[in-house]
Simulated assay, not measured.
Amino acid sequence: MLLRNARTLIGTTTIVLFWAVGAGWLAQPLLDLAQRGAPPGGQTVAPATYAAHTAIVLLGTGTVHRDGKLVPPRDAIARIAMSADLYARCKQVSSVCHVIVSGGNPQEHEATEADTYLPYLLREEVPRGDIILENRSMTTYENARNVAAILPDGYYGSLMLVTSAYQMPRALLNFHRFGMNPLPVVSNTRHAKRGVLPRRENFFDAEIALHELVGIAQFHVYRQIGWF
């Protein structure tokens, strides 16, 4: 009887939540929470920030099929462009500039994230000899762990971390966990589009935000019980 009486309330609440996410009114607050603490996108990195040996870490964000080809998704393109821009600026003042691309194959596609992104960095005039591929990591935690394993002690005087605003807070938690203190450089920030009708992109944004918020909570829980 109680369940029967609650059906209308549950159904109405579900419809309202569905609409609020799709129309952007709930998706945007979720994005704001996930992106809170990340530096603003488009920030300028001062020349003095680059050391004689500088490493730029580009975090992967999956791969997608488009026109029969495996390609980087939109957010990855922004990260690649930002990393290439940092590299070009680095070469003006530093003797050694490396771009470390970190991303395995969690989606089980025909190639890893790092290998898929490589040609795009080459097109942006980053020489192959200055690109280090880390193509085994499956999670942000493994990104940090595997990057830490390939950084020689004391070799890089400057370390930069390039990713989207929504991933930056969680990425920094993991990089700090492995003793690294990179300069965070945001490649892009996501914004929901508020309106009357639900949009597919807003559902995608809400899913991304929830994934990051759950990931942050998971990190702290795992740290408390000694798993991280």
Rank of each mutant, 00 (worst) to 15 (best):
L2V: 13
L2W: 07
L2F: 08
L3P: 08
N5V: 10
A6W: 06
R7W: 11
L9E: 00
I10H: 11
T12H: 09
I15Q: 06
F18K: 02
L26E: 04
Q28I: 07
L31M: 08
L31Y: 06
A34P: 00
P39E: 01
Q43G: 14
T44I: 12
A48S: 13
T49D: 12
T49L: 09
A52P: 12
H53Y: 04
L59V: 06
G60R: 02
T61Y: 10
H65L: 11
G68R: 04
G68T: 04
K69C: 09
P73K: 02
R74D: 04
A78E: 14
I80T: 00
M82E: 12
A84V: 02
L86S: 07
L86H: 09
Y87F: 10
K91R: 15
K91L: 11
C97I: 04
H98R: 15
G103H: 04
N105L: 03
N105I: 08
Q107M: 09
Q107E: 14
H109R: 14
E110W: 05
A111E: 12
E113K: 13
D115I: 14
D115V: 15
Y120T: 05
L122T: 10
R123H: 15
E124M: 13
D130H: 01
I132Q: 04
N135I: 00
M138Q: 06
T140F: 00
E142R: 10
E142P: 07
E142V: 07
E142Q: 14
N143L: 02
A148G: 08
I150Q: 03
I150K: 01
I150L: 12
P152A: 03
Y156A: 08
G157V: 02
L159M: 10
V162I: 03
V162N: 03
S164F: 01
S164Q: 13
S164D: 10
M168Y: 12
A171F: 04
L173I: 02
F175L: 11
G179N: 04
M180E: 12
P182H: 10
L183Q: 13
L183R: 14
P184T: 14
T189I: 08
A192I: 12
K193M: 15
G195K: 10
V196H: 12
V196D: 03
E207A: 15
L210F: 06
H211N: 13
H211R: 14
F219K: 07
Y222M: 15
